[in-house]
Design a protein around this nucleic acid. Sequence first.
DNA 1: GGGGTTCGATACAGTTTGTTACAGGTTTTC
DNA 2: GAAAACCTGTAACAAACTGTATCGAACCCC
Lengths: 242, 242
Amino acid sequence: MSNPSSHILIVDDHRDIRESLARYLTKNGFRTSTAENAAQARQVLKAASIDLVVLDVMMPGEDGLSLCRHLVETNQAPVILLTAMAEDTDRVVGLEIGADDYVTKPFNPRELLARIRAVLRRMSNVPKTRDPIETEKLRFEGWELDVNRRELTGPDGVMVPLSTGEYQLLIAFLKRPKMVLSRDQLLDLTSGRTPAVFDRSIDNQVSRLRRKIEEDPKNPVLIKTVWGGGYTFTAEVTEPAE
Amino acid sequence: MSNPSSHILIVDDHRDIRESLARYLTKNGFRTSTAENAAQARQVLKAASIDLVVLDVMMPGEDGLSLCRHLVETNQAPVILLTAMAEDTDRVVGLEIGADDYVTKPFNPRELLARIRAVLRRMSNVPKTRDPIETEKLRFEGWELDVNRRELTGPDGVMVPLSTGEYQLLIAFLKRPKMVLSRDQLLDLTSGRTPAVFDRSIDNQVSRLRRKIEEDPKNPVLIKTVWGGGYTFTAEVTEPAE
DNA sequence: GGGGTTCGATACAGTTTGTTACAGGTTTTC
DNA sequence: GAAAACCTGTAACAAACTGTATCGAACCCC
């Protein structure tokens, strides 16, 4: 990322919201500051250069509301409000409108992130940071797996339907080719389940998957058994979009 | 934005709403005027060229509805009514009189903005000013969902009617594409209902939605089932204004 | 080769899901 | 207002999926 990251101020009286939101935004390339109340927020605003404020209106005291109005009228920083769903809407709505945007609680962090970027882009033409592109297809030995559609196509062009378990197992293999994966690892990778004693569900899934992708399931080529160790996917895997 | 902005007249007896709404619309590229009552509104309408009127029906003095009727009959300007909650008599009367749209109080400012743009676009082919925040249409796999009108148009251009439940379910999916959503999550996102034991209403809604948007409902592509997990919307969702 | 362990395939049962039918409620229409 | 149409949750059954059990075969080490 070449452009300098923007500085977001988070004002909320709930400690966990402050912290998790700050962590999330930091992870997405922003610098963050937090404030517990309007007074703290004013101090931060004086001390640092804040590009955008995420503000919870429903804080003890009227200060949150007046802070919002102050920021908007002095044009100090754009404001995104966090509002509760069913509150004294008549009064809140009037004040909400002064903000640049608002998000109702409980909110989706990704949505908030998108709105922050939208406001920043609108305010000062900050270049948008692109989300990483997910690879869409994985190829191996003439097979092609469309990751998004969860569709597997064979060398002959015939589509092979996969169940959720088979799909997850195949993905686990394709992402770690030529690696010996124990049953416990595979169990964790596919279902996240805690390995029970004498759990042979993976054996079954492997067997079912072999029946679908191996030319001769009796003599498997793609998925080899490692005696006492687990299974290995032997073929080369290519990601076209990589 | 190159096109000249439209001029909106806001008629409301609440000072807070007038001012904040005017600020909000100005920030989004409109010129605004305000009036405290119907008499003032008539004066403004004589003096300036007004493209659209946002009118509160509940005002002391001359009834807002008679002003609305007058505006429509003389074809002076399209009208969007602000109506109080829970009174569908207002709504019915307002639409009979010829208001172009209505918004119930307490209203969502973004929704009002979207409706203003929709009415203007519909009335006089005013070039649409892009809303950087609220997307009006969502596209996926050749489909197009008009969020404001709740209209879904297929790849063949045929409009598919959606019930409220189907619409909310689709919105929930479109806002979180490629994310596995459990039945409880979907239930909360669509109806806010508390999940009951053995609640299979989501299954039904999914089935009904599939029947409308999937080419082959037996082999769904857009809405995939995640066994033991819920459902996932697999397609890319694009927001034209983005 | 023998004994113990591990693996593959089948069968089966429990769970989850798709679909249809239907009743209660709501909205629309006349 | 009454009737029709529509919407939505519940019930019920068939189909799909997955874990466990089982048995015979393969494997390792001695």
